[in-house]
Amino acid sequence: MKNWWKILSVVLLMYVMIMGFLGEVPRQPILNESVRNLYFHVTMWFSMMALLITSVWYSVKYLRNPLEEYDDKAVEFAYTGILFGVLGLITGSLWARFTWGAWWTNDPKLNSVAIGMLIYFAYIILRGSFQDELQRGRISAVYNIFAFVIFMVLIWILPRMTDSLHPGNGGNPGFKPMDTKGTMQIVFRPAIVGWILLGVWITTLRLRLKKLERIQKEL
């Protein structure tokens, strides 16, 4: 059973879907039922981080040993990471509309992630501007590592230096005090694993597609 993790991903996400919409959640003013978005919004960022870290890992590997395989993996993990980042922005925007009253607020975390997405779009454009595969691989790997470090500064350090509307920042309470019975944690933690596995699955599918296209081109 080498595909056990795909089955695990499906099972976990089914569980998250059912428990996420039907399970018990703490009753809070303003948040109300929208607190369920925790399973879909916060987990996107976990998955994005996991995928982008994997991407940087393969970029480092590529610089040490320039195999085409590593370059493919680095770029495909980055693509899926971007997808999860955009989904995180969309779910966050939806949540902000019903709790903070606007689709987009001038919150440092929102701005940081938006800039982070710009950095990764620039990465895609950079890749597009090379013809030679070896050069493209090496230079985009260098940029990927460089951009990742700046991205970390953006999302981990800068938002901590100002107030934010997000829970756990600027005097706002986190989720822990209200989830006294732990009913959300038993859905939240499997959700993180499930979404990350789904991200890896999407990436492996794209990698296979890329390999097939390459074979087709050679024929």
Partner: peptide
């Protein structure tokens, strides 16, 4: 321009 602007923002 497109590579440097987002990176320089922090």
């Amino acid at each position: 321009a497109i590579l440097s602007f987002p990176v320089i923002i922090p």
